[in-house]
Amino acid sequence: MQTRYKTIKESQVTFSELMLPSHSNFNNKIHGGYILNLLDQIAFACASKHSEAYCVTASVDKVNFLNPIEIGELVTMRASINYVGRSSMVIGIRVEAENIKTQQKKHCNSSYFTMVAKDEAGQSVEVPGLRLNTENDLRRFARAVQRRKTKSEHKESFSEQHFSSTPYLELLKEEKVQIAL
């Protein structure tokens, strides 16, 4: 079977929503959990659009809350496919909030969701490949490959079978921890 390829633009999704008082926390800022819910929805839409299949969230690799979002601001999320594997996709999402009165925008969040395409029986299905058309497309794909590699190496070095506390004992002397082994 010949692999199909799609461009990043073919699967991009943009979503905007006005932030209401019902979305706020006790500090009158928009609740992070509400933003996470929206992030999951846009990641699903972007991944499903690319794969043409139902998708599930496999992991949230990174969520950086950079600036608070205020009640009354217009939040815009932009989701793009950054990486594809056999059945998985990494969706990069950028969140901006805009003060509607002043039109001032601020970058509030960057996130990376790993989504997996599934069939009706719940089995993973192969997704189309990704056609990289710009230097930025290539940079994002390479960054995702590097993040996956680093994550795998980190997981391996901290597994129960391979972990050795000796190299960390000196490092942990500077931390607020009491070791009683």
Rank of each mutant, 00 (worst) to 15 (best):
L171C: 11
N27Q: 08
R94I: 09
V177M: 08
I93R: 01
A79V: 05
N67D: 14
F26E: 05
Y83F: 10
E126K: 11
R131P: 09
C108A: 13
H107M: 02
E70T: 08
R86S: 10
R148D: 15
C46I: 07
S88P: 01
F141T: 02
K62C: 10
T14E: 15
K9D: 09
V116H: 06
H23V: 13
S110W: 10
E126V: 15
E170H: 02
A45E: 08
I69S: 10
V84M: 05
N109T: 15
E160Y: 05
H107C: 11
G122M: 07
F15H: 12
M115Y: 08
S124A: 06
Y83S: 08
V95E: 13
A117R: 05
S152M: 12
N37V: 04
D119W: 00
A142Y: 11
L74V: 06
C55S: 12
H162R: 05
A58P: 01
R78L: 12
T7N: 09
I91G: 04
S88I: 13
S24D: 13
L169E: 15
R140M: 01
S157N: 08
F158G: 04
M115D: 03
L74Y: 12
R148N: 14
S48L: 06
H154P: 01
I91P: 06
E98T: 04
T14V: 01
P128Q: 03
G72H: 06
H154Q: 03
S165F: 10
S87Q: 08
Y5W: 07
D40A: 03
Q104Y: 15
G32C: 09
K49T: 06
L38W: 10
T57V: 07
N25M: 09
S110R: 07
T134E: 02
T3R: 07
V116T: 08
T150L: 15
K101G: 04
T102A: 13
T7H: 01
Y34G: 04
S111N: 14
L36D: 07
Y5C: 07
E156F: 13
F163M: 12
N64T: 05
V13F: 04
L181D: 00
K118V: 03
V145H: 07
S159Q: 07
N99P: 03
K6D: 10
E135G: 00
N25V: 12
D40K: 00
V60Q: 05
M115Q: 07
F141V: 06
V63Q: 00
I8E: 01
F26V: 13
F113C: 11
E160Q: 15
R86F: 06
L36M: 06
L66Q: 12
G33N: 14
D40I: 02
S157W: 14
R139C: 07
F113P: 05
S88Y: 14
V125P: 01
A58H: 10
T7Q: 05
H31I: 06
K105C: 03
D119Q: 08
L138H: 14
A79G: 03
T3M: 13
A43H: 05
F26Q: 02
A58Y: 14
H23P: 12
I8W: 04
L66I: 11
